[in-house]
Amino acid sequence: MKTLLPVITVSLFLMVIWYGFSAILNSTWTKDQANRAGVEVTFSEILRDTMVQQRPLLPAPHQVIIELWDTTINKKITSKRSLVYHGWITLSATLLGFLIGTGLGILLAIGIVHNKAMDYGVMPWIIASQTVPILALAPMIIVVLYSIGLAGLVPKAIISAYLSFFPVSVGMVAGFRCPDPTQMDLLKTYAAKRSQVFWKLRVPISLPYLFTSLKIGVAASLVGAIVGELPTGAVAGLGARLLTGSYYGQTVQIWSALIGSAILAATLVGFIGLVQKYTLTRMGFAR
């Protein structure tokens, strides 16, 4: 309740600004049309027209919501006009990439924690790999993998994986190093093997870090999947909706794809948040 009211207020405020901007931006077109037709338009007529244009510069929120409703509920999900269909294509690439990236990230973190040479040698490159604007690689990865016969899901998933492995590996290195000396000493007095230290101490204690990194990672892999869809010539997926929308000036379609991907991102992050809350409460981390 303490955060709900402010959040709603700020959201409403943003909504009002959105309406305001769409009225201002779209009014030029209305005035142009009126000029050509040689009629005078009143302020209220302009206002009404800016809210219902076919190809507005900035669609009003309700237009986007109607388009969203239209393309999800009113279409069969197998139809190529359905946003659910495109969303699923993006989602499957996201999830596959997220799985690969998370697995790779955790493996790297295990190696880095247990091997000094890897820690010194690989860690700087992992960090450096993120200062490279990797999305720039996306078109090349797609084209190259296509030329060796891989198309569709896998290339997009690889881009997703690349984007999501970094937060996971960095977070898990921090998490695996979390046990303090007294805890390590205790296990040493038990003559615990390295694998036992790993499974009984490092893994449980790193779970809060894991969930935090998973949230960042899943959002990143969605971005990767969407961008991965751009250079394939816009076949299917949310990224393709963005691209075709921008080719044909279908702004409502762009915005609905954008909001659709926002909802998808929020659902994914929210789902991980739920699992996090449940797991951590059961494990006694939550206070």
């Binding site: 303490k2 955060t3 009211l5 402010p6 959040v7 709603i8 207020t9 700020v10 959201s11 510069l57 999305l135 949230k215 960042i216 959002a219 969605l222 971005v223 969407i226 961008v227 949310l238 990224g239 963005l242 691209l243 929308g245 921008s246 000036g249 702004t251 762009i254 915005w255 794809a257 954008l258 991907s261 926002a262 991102a265 929020a266 992050v269």
Partner: peptide
């Protein structure tokens, strides 16, 4: 009051695929 409203929203927006706004801004 604003701070309590903006922080959760900001965290939410920061996780969104903002890159998607690129075609709109190019337009």
């Amino acid at each position: 009051f604003l701070q309590r409203g903006i922080l959760p929203l900001g965290n939410f927006v920061a996780a969104l695929p903002i890159v998607g706004t690129a075609p709109i801004f190019v337009m």
